[in-house]
Write a protein that binds this DNA or RNA. Structure first.
Lengths: 154, 154
DNA sequence: CTAGTTGCAAATATTTTGCACTTAG
DNA sequence: CTAAGTGCAAAATATTTGCAACTAG
């Protein structure tokens, strides 16, 4: 089976790149957008819009609108891990996929390659190209699965 | 690898069963709860709390509280399919797992057995006991994956 | 009776929309 | 200049909480 390359050439290495892309589209590189981008570049893990608003000192509404545009541009992506707010990260850095324990809420983040066998199997069985970046693999982590097993034996 | 049986003996075949279980716990089988259960038994697909409230003619708040209890009892489960509200179903009927297309939002529901190979692989690779009942497998359906492929070639 | 439940109102959490004002290009 | 973007207020959506009144057992 042939499939698309994992990492499409990452077009946005720094803020200037993003600025150029925005201008090319007739959009503006405003101060709030720059601040949002700076917050994203500074973050070392996915962050909520609220957190970005605080870090960047930009109105929450504008953060959401800015992130929407940046997402269209392919600069950022967001993920829904658990029940909290969506978490945003630069696309280049978001190249991780997630497993979440429904019970203890533990989040395991793995490199996409480690899920390729699983992905291939799902593709074969269902024709579905699975991704666990936006929504994680849910279930029970090893520890909680073990505990449930013990409870069951009672 | 040994693992727990798929279907734990389903304790709740009808409303009377649930009533008994509630009373056993010192909880009451009130009229609103009966109406909520009737709505659930009448539904042929997972429904939102809002829909249940309408169908049962019970206050939304009480529906949420009732569902919470019923979930603790193991009578109902809910799933988060896509971005909308949680969808509730009787546990016995909820024994399906889901794949959702992020692009066209199409939902495919499959019998859990069809995902057992995938589950086994995830268990081997990560020690994680995956379930796609509460949160679905996300990604692109066959059609949308094909379309994206064609776009990519442009 | 009385503890568990309900309905209503209000709060919370997350995200979106409307609109007059500001600003990048 | 002027269209794009911003901040603020308000709405929308999904869910939870407080509390006085109600009711199942």
């Amino acid at each position: 089976v042939t499939h698309a390359p994992r990492t499409p050439p990452l077009a946005f290495r720094d803020i200037a790149d993003v600025a150029a892309a925005l201008r090319e589209r007739g959009e503006r590189f405003s101060t709030p957008r720059r601040l949002v981008l700076e917050a994203l570049f500074a973050a070392d893990a996915p962050v909520s819009a609220e957190q970005i608003a605080r870090d960047a000192g930009v109105e929450l509404t504008s953060v959401y609108r800015g992130l929407e545009r940046l997402e269209e541009l392919g600069v950022v992506t967001h993920a829904h891990i658990g029940h909290g707010p969506g978490l945003y990260a630069l696309t280049g850095r978001a190249e991780r996929e997630y497993l979440v324990c429904e019970r203890c809420k533990a989040v395991t983040s793995v490199e996409p390659e480690r899920l390729d066998r699983v992905r291939a199997m799902i593709r074969e069985d269902f024709g579905h190209e699975a991704s666990f970046r936006h929504f994680p693999i849910s279930g029970l982590c090893a520890a909680c699965a073990g505990e449930r097993e013990r409870e069951r034996e009672t």
